[in-house]
């Protein structure tokens, strides 16, 4: 996505309707969504008017600041990494949930933490096998169950194991079902109760994994999952392709949930903490 806006600011010598139309088009092409793109353009128009800006280059800073504001991870957003924590990984199928867990596990382990995985997605065929493979690659342990088993029973075993081994981070893979919201809600609710009774005082983190190539439906997904459980952040995957992942802007401005990590490939190290400054600067450089 680097240099995404470079063309815009290089190609216009004055701020006119064509400039705004082009900005709108670029934002939409980046999957920001027509509505959010329109909001961004309208806000910039106001700022340009108020500050008597004539030169496209001078409105660049405003645009940057507007976008950074929309993507900032709040203070303390990564605190859970420093404490004993349980991280639920939530998301629909195919977004890269299991891969993300593998990458996070490896990253935390390399930072000297004790990591345990819980394969609580007992619904999808071979989900447990796939997670085990990642556990092996990351060199961490995993607690799993059989296809169709109650996810809570897997989590129960995992908690027991986490306590016995004084684990720092317990990463929980959940089923990617959205279509039966009630079931998933009940399932997560049951798992929450389990943690409250058997593993209290741990730091809780609920991360939704979203596919960076997904369009406006990613906003729906985030919205739906936020109704199921309290979300604390999301992970944007598949950011190594040609998609721009602009939907993150829309999600953050509507739901106030920040991007915390981005996945940039299939290798185990292809994950990093999200930095709004770096991301936005990259768009303009």
């Amino acid at each position: 996505m680097a240099g995404f806006f470079a063309k815009l600011f290089g190609g216009f010598s004055q701020i006119d309707d064509d400039f705004y139309e082009e900005l709108f088009e670029m934002l939409v092409l980046g999957d920001v969504g027509a509505r959010t793109a329109d909001d961004i353009v309208e806000k910039l128009k106001e700022q340009v008017k108020e500050n008597h800006i004539k030169n496209p280059d001078d409105c660049k800073e405003f645009l940057k600041r507007n976008m950074k504001e929309k993507m900032l991870v709040p203070d303390g957003g990564f605190d859970f990494e420093k404490e004993r924590s349980v991280i639920f990984i939530i998301g629909v199928n195919g977004v890269g949930k299991t891969t993300t867990i593998g990458k996070l596990a490896s990253m935390f382990k390399k930072e000297g933490k004790r990591v345990l995985l819980a394969a609580a997605d007992t619904f999808r065929a071979a989900a447990t096998e796939q997670l085990r493979e990642w556990a092996d690659r990351a060199g961490v342990e995993m607690v799993g169950g059989k296809e169709g088993q109650d996810p809570s029973s897997v989590l129960f075993d995992a908690i027991a194991s986490a306590k016995a081994k004084t684990v720092d981070v317990l990463l929980v893979d959940t089923a990617g079902r959205l279509h039966n919201k009630k079931n998933l809600m009940d399932e997560l609710e049951k798992m929450n109760r389990l943690i409250n009774s058997y593993y209290p005082l741990v730091h809780r983190e609920n991360l939704v994994v979203l596919d960076g190539t997904t369009g406006q439906n990613a906003l729906n997904q985030a919205r739906e999952f936020s109704q199921v459980t309290k979300l604390t952040g999301f992970v944007m995957t598949k950011m190594d392709g040609t998609a721009k992942g602009g939907i993150a802007v829309a999600i953050q401005s509507e739901l106030g949930i920040p991007v915390k990590y981005i996945g940039t490939g299939e290798k185990i190290d292809d994950i990093k903490r999200f930095d709004a400054d770096e991301y936005v600067e990259g768009l303009f450089s």
């Binding site: 092409l29 195919g94 190539t213 997904t214 369009g215 990613a218 040609t242 998609a243 721009k244 939907i247």
Partner: peptide, 12 residues
């Protein structure tokens, strides 16, 4: 093709 794909569907 995933029906949820965004703008990038054309490139892909």
């Amino acid at each position: 093709v995933d029906a949820m794909t965004g703008q990038d569907a054309v490139t892909v």
